[in-house]
Amino acid sequence: MAVATITTDSDGPLTQSHQREVTAAYDRAKIIRKAASVAAFNGWMTGIIAFCSAPFAIFSLSGFIVTIGLSIVTYNEFRGRKRLLQFDQEAPVLLGWNQVGFLVLIISYCTWMLVVSLTSDGPFTAELKAKPELSVAFNSAEQFDRYYKMLVAGLYGAVIMLTGVFQGFNAFYYFTRRKHIKAYVENTPGWVLDLQRLTPTN
Results as ranks from 00 to 15, higher is better:
residue 37 S to I: 01
residue 81 R to V: 02
residue 154 G to C: 02
residue 133 E to P: 00
residue 135 S to A: 09
residue 58 I to F: 15
residue 93 V to R: 08
residue 58 I to E: 07
residue 81 R to D: 00
residue 109 Y to K: 08
residue 115 V to Q: 06
residue 44 W to M: 13
residue 125 T to E: 14
residue 115 V to E: 01
residue 136 V to M: 04
residue 49 I to A: 11
residue 116 V to M: 11
residue 145 D to T: 12
residue 106 I to M: 09
residue 77 E to D: 11
residue 93 V to M: 03
residue 59 F to Y: 13
residue 132 P to M: 06
residue 143 Q to V: 15
residue 70 L to W: 06
residue 122 G to L: 05
residue 100 V to Q: 04
residue 110 C to L: 13
residue 39 A to N: 01
residue 73 V to Y: 09
residue 62 S to L: 12
residue 106 I to N: 01
residue 35 A to W: 10
residue 151 L to M: 13
residue 45 M to W: 07
residue 48 I to L: 15
residue 44 W to K: 08
residue 41 F to A: 12
residue 62 S to E: 13
residue 51 F to Y: 08
residue 108 S to T: 15
residue 116 V to W: 02
residue 84 L to Q: 06
residue 70 L to Y: 10
residue 73 V to I: 15
residue 81 R to M: 15
residue 63 G to Q: 05
residue 72 I to R: 07
residue 40 A to M: 07
residue 134 L to R: 13
residue 117 S to F: 03
residue 92 P to N: 04
residue 153 A to I: 00
residue 86 Q to T: 03
residue 136 V to Q: 12
residue 137 A to S: 02
residue 157 G to P: 12
residue 101 G to K: 09
residue 112 W to F: 15
residue 112 W to E: 12
residue 100 V to A: 08
residue 97 W to Q: 09
residue 65 I to R: 15
residue 139 N to V: 06
residue 94 L to F: 10
residue 120 S to T: 15
residue 141 A to Y: 10
residue 131 K to G: 02
residue 64 F to W: 15
residue 81 R to L: 08
residue 85 L to Y: 06
residue 97 W to L: 04
residue 79 R to L: 11
residue 82 K to L: 07
residue 130 A to V: 00
residue 99 Q to C: 14
residue 60 S to A: 11
residue 142 E to L: 13
residue 150 M to A: 12
residue 56 F to G: 00
residue 89 Q to H: 01
residue 100 V to G: 02
residue 78 F to R: 03
residue 77 E to R: 00
residue 54 A to D: 01
residue 80 G to R: 01
residue 86 Q to V: 02
residue 125 T to V: 10
residue 61 L to V: 11
residue 147 Y to L: 14
residue 72 I to C: 10
residue 44 W to L: 15
residue 137 A to Q: 08
residue 65 I to A: 15
residue 34 K to C: 02
residue 44 W to H: 04
residue 128 L to G: 03
residue 70 L to S: 13
residue 100 V to C: 01
residue 74 T to W: 05
residue 133 E to Y: 06
residue 121 D to W: 04
residue 94 L to N: 05
